[in-house]
């Protein structure tokens, strides 16, 4: 069963995302959490992560810098990344996808939108 890394500087938002995933029927074995891109990079490369959900605005290393750093790194650089952020403009979406993000979900989201975006990477019950 898959392991999902959630990178968001808000602990309560990490909890909200986890509960939405659990409620949406997506099959996840374990959640790993990180509070910024730098911590996310460490956890992405040292765990067997199957999918990464990443916020945009974070201290130390932003989400977009995390995407670029992981895609340029020599290890685990092909893990799917879905940006989950309040940044909703077309320019940001293009920038994220151009940097290597595989999907983009704007907060707030419904459980159906979450399932639709993550269903490409996770199995549904």
């Amino acid at each position: 069963m898959p392991k999902v890394l959630i990178i968001d500087d808000s602990a309560v938002m990490r909890k909200i995302i986890q509960r939405n995933i659990q409620q949406s029927g997506l099959l996840v074995d374990e959640f790993v959490e990180a509070g910024d891109g730098r911590e996310g990079l460490e956890k992405a490369t040292s765990n067997n992560i199957d999918l990464i959900l990443c916020d945009w605005n974070m201290p130390n290393m932003s989400g977009i810098d995390f995407v670029k750093a992981l895609r340029c790194s020599g290890q685990k650089n092909n893990i799917p990344i879905v940006m989950v952020t309040t940044e909703g403009g077309e320019t940001k979406i293009e920038e994220a996808k151009g940097s290597g993000a595989n999907g983009y979900l704007t907060k707030p989201f419904t459980p159906e939108q979450l399932r639709s975006k993550l269903g490409n990477f996770l199995l549904v019950k």
Partner: peptide, 19 residues
């Protein structure tokens, strides 16, 4: 958790207005 949730709610409203 309640305080943090209120912060996130304000953040999501502001994020949407910002867009």
């Amino acid at each position: 958790d309640v305080k943090d949730a209120i912060g996130e709610i304000a953040n999501m409203i502001a994020g949407n207005v910002k867009t």
